[in-house]
Amino acid sequence: MGYLKGLQPYLEKNYERSIFDAAAQSRKPWELHIHGHRVIACKIYKNLKYDILSSQPGGGEMHLSKLQIKLLYPLEVASRVRGMIRIDEEVRSMNLDPILAAGARRFVKNKSLFPLMMSREVVFFTLLEGEVIRGIIADFSRYDITVHLKGGVPIAILRHAIYDLKNRRGRSFLKDFQEEQRDWEKSDLYVP
């Protein structure tokens, strides 16, 4: 059985990291996109198992379920990010809720993410409420995927919030499609 050169060392180093730990350590305000088409600014103080502990400007502490969060980025880049998020009206009209059961989520395999990241291919993430994020995968862990938008602006997409991931040619990288197509085996990183 083949493997992707570099994937295992990458996962050993990065897989258990969380953007919420990085956000808490930054001590800076972040902007979070939350289910229900809400966007809030807050400082994240602690990454708990299923929630984050945060505070909004002028408000007290707030527990927020991670499953409600779709994407986040430092508040300092918010005006640039907001201008680059597009909406897929067809997906938005489905009124999809967060997918609570992990087995029911629209999963993207690490074997698909790694070659896309290493090749720096432009990809399109569509989230459950229709947001479309265009960029290059810069990093990923078990929980989130960091994408650099135009100009290198970083955002983090929570893996549980993904509806689809496609390249410019419209090829899907969701697990269900890739189980048969196995595009990772076409990568220069693949060792048979």
Rank of each mutant, 00 (worst) to 15 (best):
G36T: 07
M62D: 03
P57E: 12
R38E: 15
Q56E: 14
G59D: 07
K109M: 10
E31G: 01
R27G: 03
R27H: 04
A102Q: 09
V77S: 14
S112W: 01
A78P: 05
I85R: 05
V108F: 06
E89Q: 05
K109W: 00
K66V: 09
C42Q: 04
H63A: 04
F107R: 09
E31Q: 11
L71A: 07
I40G: 03
V108Q: 07
G36N: 07
V39D: 05
M94P: 00
R86K: 09
G59P: 00
G60M: 09
F107H: 06
G36S: 10
F107C: 01
R92M: 12
R106I: 04
S65E: 13
S54G: 15
A24T: 00
G58I: 01
V91F: 06
R82L: 14
P29T: 09
L72A: 12
V108S: 07
L100E: 15
I85Y: 03
V91D: 10
L32G: 05
R38H: 12
M94C: 02
S93C: 05
K28N: 13
S26W: 06
R82F: 10
H63Q: 07
V39N: 05
R92E: 13
E90L: 01
E76Y: 00
F114K: 06
E90V: 02
L71M: 14
G59I: 01
K66F: 08
A23Q: 04
I40Q: 05
K109V: 00
H35T: 14
G60V: 10
A23G: 07
F107L: 09
K70L: 10
L64D: 06
L32D: 08
S54M: 15
A23W: 04
A24P: 01
I87Y: 08
A41D: 10
K70A: 12
P29S: 12
R92P: 03
K28Q: 15
A41I: 04
H33I: 06
I85E: 03
A24Y: 00
R92T: 08
R80H: 09
W30Y: 15
M94D: 03
K43W: 08
N47D: 15
V39L: 06
P98W: 02
A102N: 05
K109C: 04
R27K: 11
K66N: 12
L113N: 13
R80Q: 15
L100S: 14
K46Q: 15
L113T: 12
A101W: 00
M62P: 01
A78G: 11
P74H: 01
S112P: 02
L72C: 15
L100M: 13
V81C: 12
L53M: 03
Q56Y: 02
G36Y: 04
Y45K: 04
F114N: 08
K49Q: 14
M94H: 02
L64M: 10
K70R: 11
V108K: 04
I87C: 13
S26R: 06
L48H: 07
F114D: 07
F107G: 00
K49E: 15
R106M: 08
L64R: 02
W30I: 07
G103M: 03
L53K: 04
G59A: 10
K70Y: 02
G83E: 10
H33F: 04
D88T: 00
I99E: 13
N95E: 14
I69M: 06
R86D: 09
K66M: 11
E76M: 03
